[in-house]
Design a protein around this nucleic acid. Structure first.
Lengths: 174, 174
DNA sequence: CCATAAGATGAAGCAATATTCACTTAGTGG
DNA sequence: CCACTAAGTGAATATTGCTTCATCTTATGG
């Protein structure tokens, strides 16, 4: 995430937005979406509700932004994990390790996230997907590339096509 | 579940109650507790809201009743699975198999259930436990008895005390 | 067939909380 | 120091949805 060289005010805004998202994250992951009021979020973030609404169109919007942000953070961490130079098997080990850490330290938020993205739960009028899905798609391609190159170097057996393996590994670790 | 020889009205009531629980199950597991209104449940069950309230004190009460019912069904199925006559190892296999099936065919409801009983999510003022916990406790004892008897017959090695093994198997399969 | 009771209904009351907006406060350039 | 704009505020309003209850419907039995 780049943010060098921005008008000061712009940077402040970002910081405020972060404050808000962070407060929301704490509360949502602690008590769940429906049991947190905008008042609470505002209070925890030390702003007035009105200000919160200057940044997010609605509660749902805030929630979506939060998921996006989470997805981004996760994706970045995992991407870096498999881009570490070294042999393919090391990259995969890295991936599993980092994913494990991420899940462990964000357990409650993950539950929230999955209840949203996976089946059931509430139908946040879709839309959240487009970007997240796309990003995840790109990530899977990168992961597939790791398998691919491992196969080329005769490190892995070609038990299935690389992309399927990537999907499988991702699912299993979830 | 016994219900033979009940005053007709009584049986109708049970049936109605079932209708309601069933409608609630569909909706809750589809959209999650907070995204289903009592109106919806009533409509789906083909009753008026008022009638719904004749059966359940509140929405929370309805939800609890549903969880209880689920817990009961599960417990029964699993109890039967380990009571099938035969060698202990077969009982354990049965247990795992049946549990797998139950989980597969009730995925969304299970998620709901776990988000309730496990950590985070909403604080349904406890209380739901007492009976469910007790029932589960009894079940674990039965499962422990299977290990116990398997050990007595020298089928299993005594790697740990039976009750711990029962708890372990239950956790793992979850 | 009527009187009475038991059951069912859904519109209205009410509480919680998401959202708005008229107003205050802080920042900026002249 | 002032005029003007951008930012921030939180009380007032709108919405949502749980719950109640006066009323209507159906069942019972005399």
């Amino acid at each position: 995430m780049e943010d060098r060289e921005l008008p000061r005010r712009e940077r402040e805004k970002r910081a405020q937005r972060q404050e808000m998202l962070s407060a929301a994250l704490d509360l949502f992951s602690e008590k769940g979406y429906h049991n947190v009021s905008m008042q609470e979020v505002a209070q925890k973030a030390e702003f007035a509700v009105g200000t919160l609404y200057k940044f997010f169109r609605s509660k749902e919007d805030l929630y979506k932004a939060l998921l996006m942000e989470m997805a981004g953070t996760f994706d970045d961490a995992l991407r870096i994990a498999i881009e570490e130079p070294g042999p393919e098997i090391g990259k995969l080990r890295n991936y599993v390790k980092v994913k494990g850490e991420l899940f462990r330290s964000n357990a409650s938020m993950i539950r929230l996230y999955f209840s949203e993205t996976q089946g059931a739960s509430f139908n946040m009028n879709a839309g959240l997907d487009s970007e997240v899905r796309e990003r995840h798609g790109r990530f899977l391609k990168k992961l597939a590339a790791v398998f691919e190159s491992g196969m080329k170097r005769k490190q892995f057996r070609r038990i299935a096509d690389p992309y399927s393996l990537a999907v499988a590994l991702a699912s299993i670790t979830n």
